[in-house]
Protein backbone atom coordinates (compact mmCIF):
# COMPACT_ATOMS: atom_id res chain seq x y z
CA UNK A 1 0.00 0.00 0.00
CA UNK A 2 1.35 3.39 -0.93
CA UNK A 3 2.17 5.43 2.16
CA UNK A 4 0.08 8.53 2.58
CA UNK A 5 1.88 11.82 2.96
CA UNK A 6 0.13 14.06 5.46
CA UNK A 7 -0.45 17.32 3.65
CA UNK A 8 -0.38 20.49 5.77
CA UNK A 9 1.23 18.72 8.74
CA UNK A 10 0.98 20.95 11.79
CA UNK A 11 4.30 21.37 13.55
CA UNK A 12 4.15 22.33 17.24
CA UNK A 13 3.14 25.96 17.61
CA UNK A 14 3.84 26.20 21.35
CA UNK A 15 5.77 24.56 24.14
CA UNK A 16 2.66 22.65 25.14
CA UNK A 17 2.33 21.11 21.68
CA UNK A 18 5.90 19.77 21.68
CA UNK A 19 6.12 16.00 22.00
CA UNK A 20 7.54 14.87 25.33
CA UNK A 21 11.09 13.97 24.33
CA UNK A 22 11.85 12.62 20.88
CA UNK A 23 8.78 10.38 20.51
CA UNK A 24 5.55 10.72 18.57
CA UNK A 25 2.91 8.83 16.61
CA UNK A 26 4.52 6.34 14.23
CA UNK A 27 4.06 6.14 10.46
CA UNK A 28 3.45 9.82 9.88
CA UNK A 29 5.13 10.94 6.68
CA UNK A 30 5.16 14.65 6.07
CA UNK A 31 7.06 14.74 2.80
CA UNK A 32 8.20 12.47 -0.02
CA UNK A 33 11.75 11.30 0.40
CA UNK A 34 13.53 10.37 -2.78
CA UNK A 35 15.48 13.44 -3.78
CA UNK A 36 18.90 11.85 -3.57
CA UNK A 37 18.24 9.19 -6.25
CA UNK A 38 20.30 9.42 -9.43
CA UNK A 39 19.40 5.97 -10.78
CA UNK A 40 15.85 4.58 -10.80
CA UNK A 41 14.93 0.90 -11.01
CA UNK A 42 12.59 0.10 -13.88
CA UNK A 43 10.84 -3.27 -14.12
CA UNK A 44 10.52 -4.94 -17.49
CA UNK A 45 6.96 -6.15 -16.88
CA UNK A 46 7.02 -8.61 -19.84
CA UNK A 47 9.93 -10.54 -18.36
CA UNK A 48 8.89 -10.28 -14.69
CA UNK A 49 7.63 -13.57 -13.18
CA UNK A 50 6.52 -12.04 -9.85
CA UNK A 51 9.01 -14.16 -7.91
CA UNK A 52 8.84 -11.35 -5.33
CA UNK A 53 12.52 -11.45 -4.42
CA UNK A 54 12.73 -7.70 -5.05
CA UNK A 55 9.58 -7.14 -2.96
CA UNK A 56 11.14 -9.15 -0.14
CA UNK A 57 14.56 -7.48 -0.24
CA UNK A 58 13.73 -3.82 -0.87
CA UNK A 59 15.14 -2.02 2.20
CA UNK A 60 12.53 0.72 1.94
CA UNK A 61 9.54 -1.49 1.22
CA UNK A 62 8.58 0.60 -1.78
CA UNK A 63 7.67 -2.30 -4.11
CA UNK A 64 3.96 -3.10 -4.10
CA UNK A 65 2.55 -6.54 -4.98
CA UNK A 66 -1.08 -5.52 -4.48
CA UNK A 67 -1.45 -4.65 -8.17
CA UNK A 68 -1.45 -7.06 -11.16
CA UNK A 69 2.05 -5.86 -12.00
CA UNK A 70 4.69 -5.05 -9.38
CA UNK A 71 4.88 -1.30 -8.82
CA UNK A 72 7.73 0.77 -7.47
CA UNK A 73 6.84 3.85 -5.43
CA UNK A 74 9.27 6.43 -6.77
CA UNK A 75 8.25 8.88 -4.04
CA UNK A 76 10.18 6.80 -1.53
CA UNK A 77 12.62 4.67 -3.57
CA UNK A 78 16.16 5.82 -2.77
CA UNK A 79 17.63 4.15 -5.83
CA UNK A 80 19.99 1.77 -4.04
CA UNK A 81 19.73 -0.79 -6.85
CA UNK A 82 19.42 -3.81 -4.57
CA UNK A 83 16.34 -5.01 -6.49
CA UNK A 84 18.14 -4.86 -9.83
CA UNK A 85 21.19 -6.60 -8.40
CA UNK A 86 19.18 -9.42 -6.85
CA UNK A 87 16.60 -9.96 -9.62
CA UNK A 88 17.33 -13.53 -10.87
CA UNK A 89 16.08 -12.81 -14.41
CA UNK A 90 17.61 -9.34 -14.59
CA UNK A 91 14.26 -7.80 -15.42
CA UNK A 92 14.99 -4.69 -13.36
CA UNK A 93 17.26 -2.13 -14.97
CA UNK A 94 18.72 0.96 -13.28
CA UNK A 95 18.07 3.94 -15.51
CA UNK A 96 19.62 7.37 -15.17
CA UNK A 97 17.33 9.96 -13.65
CA UNK A 98 16.51 12.81 -15.99
Amino acid sequence: MKPQVVKNYQFPQSKEQMPFGPGSEAGVLIEINSGWRNLRPVINQEKCTRCLICWLLCPDGVISKDTPQLEIDYDFCKGCGLCAYECPRKTIVMEKEG
Binding site: M18, F20, P22, G23, S24, E25, A26, G27, V28
Partner: peptide, 21 residues
Protein backbone atom coordinates in the same frame (compact mmCIF):
# COMPACT_ATOMS: atom_id res chain seq x y z
CA UNK B 1 -2.47 -0.27 19.66
CA UNK B 2 -0.94 3.19 19.31
CA UNK B 3 2.39 2.72 17.54
CA UNK B 4 4.96 5.40 18.27
CA UNK B 5 8.26 6.37 16.82
CA UNK B 6 10.66 6.76 19.75
CA UNK B 7 14.12 8.31 20.03
CA UNK B 8 13.72 9.72 16.56
CA UNK B 9 16.15 12.08 14.92
CA UNK B 10 15.43 15.78 15.19
CA UNK B 11 16.79 18.14 12.55
CA UNK B 12 18.59 21.40 13.36
CA UNK B 13 15.23 23.20 13.30
CA UNK B 14 13.96 21.17 16.30
CA UNK B 15 16.98 19.98 18.29
CA UNK B 16 17.17 23.14 20.44
CA UNK B 17 13.55 22.75 21.64
CA UNK B 18 14.26 19.19 22.84
CA UNK B 19 17.43 20.35 24.64
CA UNK B 20 15.42 23.09 26.31
CA UNK B 21 13.02 20.40 27.59
Amino acid sequence: EKPKSLSFSAPPEWQTEFRFQ
